[in-house]
Design a protein around this nucleic acid. Structure first.
Lengths: 222, 222
DNA sequence: ACAGAAGTGGAGGACGTGCCTCCACTTTGT
DNA sequence: ACAAAGTGGAGGCACGTCCTCCACTTCTGT
C-alpha cells in the first residue's frame, strides 16, 4: 500500500474534465436565466450529460453554487471598490446601485446568492462579507459631501436592492429595463438636496404591462 | 316531481351554516397570516372541521377566496375614495399609499389578491378594477396641485406597492414597521419640490436584522 | 320519538416535483 | 488489451397538495 488507490487531487480524466466544464457552463446559464431553483437534472440536460455525472462531480447543489459564484461576487466587490474611486461621490454611489440592479436583472442566480444569505458555503459567504465595508464607505463618503441625505445608513442599500430586485423580477418579461424608472425615483428620494425631480430614465408602463407584471408576481411560498 | 328534491338555494341546516362561518373565519385568519398558499386542509384544521366539509362548501380554493375578498377589496376602494376627499392632495395620496402598505403588511392574503391578478374569480376581479379610476384621480389631483412630480403616471403606484410589499414581506419578522422607512424615501422621491429630506418615520435596521431579513427572502419559485 | 335527509370527518388515493443512487455499460490511459 | 475511471438515466424515496369517498353522526319535520 505504497500509494493509496485514490489520490484525492489526481487530475480528472480528460473526458471527465470536459464534462465538468460543460456542467459549470450549463449551470451558469441555467442559474442566470431561471435562478438557483433549477434542478440538477435540468443542468445535466443542458450540459448534455447524465444526472449521475453531475452528482458525482458536485455532491450537492450548494457546492456547485459555491464553486460558481465565489468569483462572481469577488468581481462585484471589485466593481464596488471602483465606484469608491469616482471623483463625484454621488455618482459613485449611484453607479454602484445601478450596476447592482443591472447584474440582478440579468442574472437571477447571482441576485439570489448575493441577496438571500441562505445559499452558498463558506467561500461565498466570505466573499459576500467583503461587501459590507465597501458599501459603508460609499454611503459615508456621499454623506460627507452633503450629497446623500444624512439619515440613511449603509444597511439601507441592500434593502433598497431587494425592493428593486423584486420589481425587476416582475417586469423582466414585460419591460426588462423598467427598474431604471423606479431606481430613478428612489435615488431622488435619497438625495440630500434637490430642487426639481431628476428626469426619469425610463417611461412608465401602460395598464396592460402592469397587469402582466402583476401576473408574474409570485408570493413567497408557504 | 312537483318540487325538485334539492332546491339550489334552500338554506343550510343550522349546524352546517355554523360550520360554514367557522370555515370563512378560519380562512380569513389563515390567509392573513400565511398568504393564499395555505391548504384547505390547514383551513379545515383551524376551523375544527374535516377537510371534506370544506370541500363540500367551497368546491375549490378560488371560490373561497372570491367569497372572502370581494368585500375587503370594495372596502379598500372606499378608503381610497376617502383619500380623494382629503383637503391636501399630497396628504391624500400619501395616506392612500401608506394605508395600502399597512393592509399589505398585516394581511398577506389581501395583498396577494390585490396585487397578483391571478387569484379570484369575477367578483374579485371586478372589485379590483374599481381601483383604477380612483388611483388615477389621486395622482392627477396631486400633480395638478404641483405636489407630485409631473413625470409619474398612475400605473407607477401599483409597482411601487409591489416593491414595498416585497420589502415588508422580508422584514415582517424582524421589524414589522420597517417598510415605513422606505416608503418615506420613495415618497420623497415622488415629491415635485423638496428642499430638505422629510424625516423618516422609522429607524434603519442593524446588520443582524438585515441578515435575518435577507434570509427570509425567497426568490420566485421556478 | 323516529325516519330519512343532510351533513361530517379524515384516511387515503392520485398526482406532481425534486433529490439523489445505483449499476450495466462505455471510454480512457498505459 | 485490460483495468480503472467515468457515464447515463431509469427509478426509488420523500415530500406535499389536492380532492374523493363513504361509514358514521346530527338535525329536522311530522
Amino acid at each position: 500500500m505504497a500509494t493509496s488507490p485514490i489520490t484525492p487531487d489526481r487530475p480528472l480524466r480528460r473526458d471527465a474534465e470536459r464534462n465538468r466544464q460543460a456542467i459549470l457552463a450549463a449551470a451558469r446559464d441555467a442559474f442566470a436565466e431561471d435562478g438557483l431553483s433549477v434542478t440538477l437534472d435540468e443542468i445535466a440536460r443542458r450540459a448534455g450529460v447524465g444526472v449521475g455525472t453531475v452528482y458525482r462531480r458536485f455532491p450537492d447543489k450548494e457546492q456547485l453554487i459555491d464553486a460558481l459564484f465565489e468569483d462572481e461576487i469577488r468581481g462585484f466587490v471589485a466593481l464596488a471598490e471602483d465606484c469608491l474611486g469616482a471623483e463625484d461621490s454621488w455618482d459613485g454611489l449611484m453607479r454602484f446601485v445601478e450596476q447592482a440592479c443591472e447584474v440582478h436583472a440579468c442574472d437571477r442566480g447571482f441576485k439570489e446568492v448575493a441577496l438571500s444569505g441562505v445559499h452558498g458555503l463558506e467561500r461565498v459567504s466570505r466573499a459576500r462579507e467583503l461587501m459590507v465595508p465597501v458599501v459603508t464607505r460609499l454611503v459615508h463618503r456621499a454623506q460627507a459631501d452633503g450629497k446623500l441625505r444624512a439619515d440613511v445608513v449603509p444597511t439601507d442599500l441592500p434593502l433598497i436592492q431587494l425592493m428593486l430586485g423584486a420589481l425587476s423580477e416582475c417586469t423582466r418579461d414585460v419591460d426588462p429595463d423598467a427598474w431604471r424608472r423606479y431606481l430613478g425615483i428612489v435615488m431622488d428620494g435619497l438625495r440630500a438636496h434637490r430642487e426639481a425631480p431628476t428626469p426619469l430614465a425610463h417611461p412608465g408602463l401602460d395598464v396592460v404591462q402592469v397587469q402582466d407584471a402583476m401576473r408574474a408576481w409570485r408570493p413567497a411560498a408557504r
